[in-house]
């Protein structure tokens, strides 16, 4: 148990800056007159978790991608296409919902595999590769639907996004499972270590007999899978497959990862930090809504918070480094 205690202590020490920011935000929302009644309720807590579950899916995969030294811009478009496919399978082809959802997740995996294939076997930068697949994937969703959402109102379709298991929203359960699996991969498998190694120094990894291509392949496929899951949950929550769903989702995921302390240079970072990053961005959105801040203005605040968080991290690292 003492080792567990040591781990928790380290977690607090490593993430001190963002934990303080998170605590300050929560304290403010609990005390501020217009939000003190609405923010600290069970309903609102579940609301925050439900809304941000999909960002956590994406951010878990994105953490791996960024530790690997890459980036994945295609996840937002995958959300659109896989959501559309889920609804289409049920509405247009009369499949059972479960099959529709499976197709949705597979769509994500396939796009992820394409990303992984091109990135592993060529030297084209991940930014460019995923920029291309982002456009292609979005295009397919738009062409297929002709730009119009496919509505699907069955109870089974609503379950993964809008349903409950007991008192807990279904996406929250997904979120916990996904987080634990990702944590397991990063901390308890050889593959996890290899991801850090390839991102930290690809040449050293190659000299060590690590299969660099395989690692890249896996990470991108996993991020595709995460995006497929997110697409399924979002379509379910909206009762429809929308070709514009997931717009900008990749940026929220990247923001959460970076706020969580993962370096864009690759080689270092922690999922624990990413979790806090997701919560900071989620609670920020929620708080601004509860305070009735104009949604256009919210972008500016969000941007400033990201910059501030990353700058604080930079200052901390500089002190540590020299």
């Amino acid at each position: 148990m003492s080792r567990f205690g040591k781990g928790v202590g380290r977690y607090f020490k490593d993430n001190l800056g963002i934990l303080i920011a998170l605590a300050a935000m929560v304290a403010f929302l609990c005390l501020f007159p217009t939000t003190s009644k609405t923010f600290p309720t069970q309903k609102n807590m579940f609301n925050i978790l439900r809304q941000n579950s999909t960002n956590l899916f994406l951010a878990c995969g994105m953490t791996m991608v960024i530790i690997l030294g890459g980036i994945d811009l295609s996840v937002g478009s995958i959300i659109a296409l896989s959501g559309v496919m889920a609804a289409a399978c049920v509405v247009n082809y009369g499949m059972p919902e479960v099959l529709g959802f499976t197709v949705a997740v597979l769509v994500g995996v396939v796009v992820g595999l394409v990303n992984g294939f091109v990135i592993s076997f060529t030297t084209i930068p991940p930014f460019i590769v995923t920029l291309a697949t982002m456009n292609i994937t979005k295009g397919i969703a738009l062409v297929y639907t002709n730009g119009a959402p496919i509505r699907c109102m069955t109870d089974a379709f609503k379950f993964p996004g809008a349903g409950y298991v007991g008192p807990i929203p279904t996406p929250v359960i997904f979120m916990i499972i996904v987080f634990l699996i990702s944590l397991f991969i990063m901390n308890r498998t050889h593959l996890g270590r290899h991801i850090y190694a390839v991102g930290g120094n690809a040449m050293a990894a190659e000299f060590s007999g690590i299969n660099v291509k395989k690692v890249k392949f896996f990470v991108h496929a996993y991020e595709g899978l995460m995006a497929g899951l997110a697409g399924m949950v979002i379509a379910s929550r909206l009762y429809s497959g929308q070709p514009t769903a997931g717009d900008g989702a990749e940026m929220d995921a990247i923001a959460a990862v970076v706020v969580g302390g993962t370096s864009m240079a690759g080689g270092s970072g922690k999922l624990g930090g990413t979790l806090i990053g997701v919560l900071i961005i989620g609670i920020l959105n929620n708080g601004l809504n509860l305070m009735g801040v104009d949604s256009n203005f919210q972008y500016i605040v969000k941007g400033m918070v990201i910059l501030l968080a990353v700058y604080t991290d930079f200052l901390r690292n500089r002190k540590k480094g020299r």
């Binding site: 080792r3 397991f184 901390n187 308890r188 498998t189 050889h190 270590r193 850090y196 190694a197 930290g200 120094n201 040449m203 050293a204 000299f207 060590s208 007999g209 370096s263 240079a265 080689g267 270092s268």
Partner: peptide
């Protein structure tokens, strides 16, 4: 360029070749 995982710890750099000895089937023997 060919050896170090510069941003990682002495521990990480020492043990990366012998993960099997303490990390298998998801069990980490820290």
């Amino acid at each position: 360029t060919e050896g170090l995982y510069g941003v990682q710890s002495v521990r990480f750099n020492t043990t990366i070749e012998v993960l099997k000895e303490f990390l298998s089937k998801g069990h980490l023997n820290a």
